[in-house]
């Protein structure tokens, strides 16, 4: 029997997020020279954005590997990465909108290439989940998801280079964290969210894998005619 109800990596991730919250509340300076108090949300917004891009890149690579090797594990790792990436992307959009309201006075700016490309990426990966939902046959589901997972990864460089290419953005390329307290909080936040999203990714994979194994055993049971 487990002494603690949560797995270790998940516990560490949540503890890190709580520590970040504590640092943001009591340790880090409350206002930045250039963007004022609203910069505090950066410590939650930035790690989610980075993890979302990382997870989508990983999903694209793993989808490509699935197409080469046809292992159901790879398909399920890719699908789990996209589910968790979509969660991170949603958090990025929500925290970004809150930050935009505080900094620019509006929740959304259609002229901003970074905002628009991230929203497009969210829609693309939501489409990936919709595609998976329309298919029951596991091999076909994995194959088509693999193909779309590779195509959808084209979004990641578009998001990354959006400001350089399209220009005219309110979105800062980077926030200049001048003080040690700020850099420490950023490091703790980045590590915490990395651990947390990795834990989510692993958990989602285990759920998918259990379901896959259950379906496989069920099919074998029916085939045997017992």
């Amino acid at each position: 029997m487990r002494l603690f109800p949560l797995p270790l990596h998940l516990t560490l991730g949540w503890a890190g997020v709580l520590a970040t919250l504590g640092l943001v509340g009591f340790y880090v300076p409350t206002a930045d020279k250039t963007i004022g108090e609203s910069y505090l949300i950066f410590f939650f917004h930035f790690p989610s954005a980075v993890n979302c891009l990382n997870l989508f890149v990983i999903a694209g690579v793993v989808s490509g590997l699935y197409l080469a090797r046809s292992s159901p594990r790879l398909d399920l790792w890719a699908a789990s990465a996209i589910e968790v990436g979509l969660l991170a992307c949603t958090i990025t959009l929500v925290t970004g909108s809150i930050w935009a309201r505080a900094a620019w006075g509006i929740f959304w700016d259609v002229r901003d290439p970074r905002l628009m490309t991230v929203a497009i990426m969210w829609l693309t990966y939501a489409g990936y989940l919709a595609l998976r939902g329309t298919m029951d046959e596991p091999v076909k589901k994995a194959l088509f998801s693999g193909v779309f997972g590779v195509i959808a990864a084209i979004n990641v460089p578009i998001v990354y280079f959006a400001i350089q290419f399209f220009g005219q953005s309110h979105h800062p390329m980077n926030v200049d964290l001048t003080q040690f307290e700020m850099r420490l909080t950023e490091a703790v936040g980045a590590t915490a969210f990395l651990v947390l999203y990795t834990a989510f990714w692993r958990m989602r994979f285990r759920v998918h894998w259990s379901r896959h194994e259950l379906n496989r055993m069920e099919s074998a049971f029916h085939r045997s005619g017992i």
Partner: peptide, 13 residues
């Protein structure tokens, strides 16, 4: 419907 859901976001940029 799925075709539109998949293709339109890819084409927006």
């Amino acid at each position: 419907v799925v075709l539109r859901i998949l293709l339109v976001p890819l084409m927006i940029p």
